[in-house]
Amino acid sequence: MRRILWHSFLYLSLTAGAALMLLPFFWMISTSLKTLAEALRMPPVWIPKALHWENYVLAWNAAPFGRYFFNSFFIAITTTVGEVITTILAAYAFAKMEFFGKNFLFILLLGTLMIPGQMLLVPNYVTIKRLGWYNTYWALIIPWVVSVFGIFLLRQFFRTIPDELWDAARIDGCSRFRFIWRIVVPLSRPGIGTVALFKFVGSWNAFLWVLIMTDKVELRTVPVGLRFFMSDVGTNYPLLMAAATMAIVPILILFFFTQRQFIQGVARTGLK
């Protein structure tokens, strides 16, 4: 009897909590399908009478969202690919090689985790200007193709690969570089996937950096575009919510398919 009570309490509260978590998303989608008059009705209309999908068309055409999405995808994909390459190489060196200054470099890298990114905004703005990268894709991609977190995570993965593999490969005349891409990388797919996933999402969600390093419409990403869309559209909530939904959907789709890896990655950060 007590068990039943406890379980009903348990699932009731978990479900209520989940509903609270999902409510803003539901409200966003619901509003995005209403007419303005319907959105401003009290008590609120939970499910719109007619679904006004045209809000999405209107929002899409009210700003160059096509360009924003292209930029976001382009930047997120190139950054992720670049990051995966630099990270694999660096993590391998730290995991499997003995070299001069290894401990020093490792501590230096650890130290970067203490630096708040916002501290670097002003000096990086100066650097980007001096490099002539202001308002270019370079400024949005190159500074982000490294992730110290990724290096640490992959290093842990690589360390579990037995040294005998490398010894055997070397005897067969395999170069270290080839060994990394042919043996180490395929063996570490889950780790690399997690690192790439985090980078992609981080890049997609990035806002402040893009806002500061560009001022051209053609270079806006989805989050920055959204912000300007807000000031243009004002209080037309159905259109605003349609735009917000469009910005969230790609990340949600990605998340649905990679949930496991994602959550394991986050859980791992707490376990070290």
Binding site: G17, P24, W27, N205, F207, L226, L240, M241, I248, F262
Partner: peptide, 15 residues
């Protein structure tokens, strides 16, 4: 429970 964390903050703040 995880959805709010991964979605872009700009869109979330708009909502």
């Amino acid at each position: 429970y995880f959805m709010p964390y991964i979605t872009p903050v700009v869109a979330i703040a708009m909502v």
